[in-house]
């Protein structure tokens, strides 16, 4: 079990996750216990309320840290198509998070350009998954 927290979620148009990745865990090697997994899901899920409040008050796609729960923080990024990127972390720097979101957004745009992409259907592209991990590694080197 990893002590650091870095969970990335893309939330589709109907406010349900279409992509989830625990960016700390390396492949199948490790796993978190049920309680921690649920906690992360609950916190990310709860952060959507805060995103809803804040997304219309800023012209910036990057909303910064929108919600906190104990030592967990949720940073959010809302694309022009109202697709939300949420990153659950334990206090990463705003700059690296902003860069991470920007790079992921770029890759995600390519996914969206797929004519078969639906903003409500889960993203199952393995390549996208790997790219997100690569971006995460480049920005959140610990």
């Amino acid at each position: 079990m990893s002590s650091t927290v870095l969970t990335f979620v893309i939330v589709g148009l109907d406010d349900h996750p279409i992509f989830e990745a625990d960016l700390v865990l390396r492949g199948e090697a490790g796993s978190r216990d049920d309680r921690t997994q649920y906690l992360h899901q609950f916190v990310l899920h709860a952060a959507l309320d805060a995103v809803e409040d804040q997304q219309w008050q800023s012209t910036n796609m990057n909303l910064g840290v929108v919600d906190k729960f104990n030592n967990l923080q949720v940073s959010a990024f809302v694309t022009a198509a109202q697709i939300k990127f949420l990153l659950l972390h334990d206090g990463r720097s705003d700059d690296s998070i902003r860069q991470f979101f920007r790079d992921v957004h770029e890759v995600f745009l390519k996914v969206m350009m797929n004519p078969f992409f639906s903003p409500k259907a889960p993203v199952k592209s393995n390549a996208f998954h790997q790219r997100v991990r690569a971006i995460s590694r480049s920005h959140f080197r610990s």
Partner: peptide, 15 residues
């Protein structure tokens, strides 16, 4: 939180 419509937050708190 439930009263102001923050249902997700409510669920988190209840959990």
């Amino acid at each position: 939180m439930g009263m102001v419509g923050s249902l997700r937050k409510r669920v988190l708190l209840l959990w």
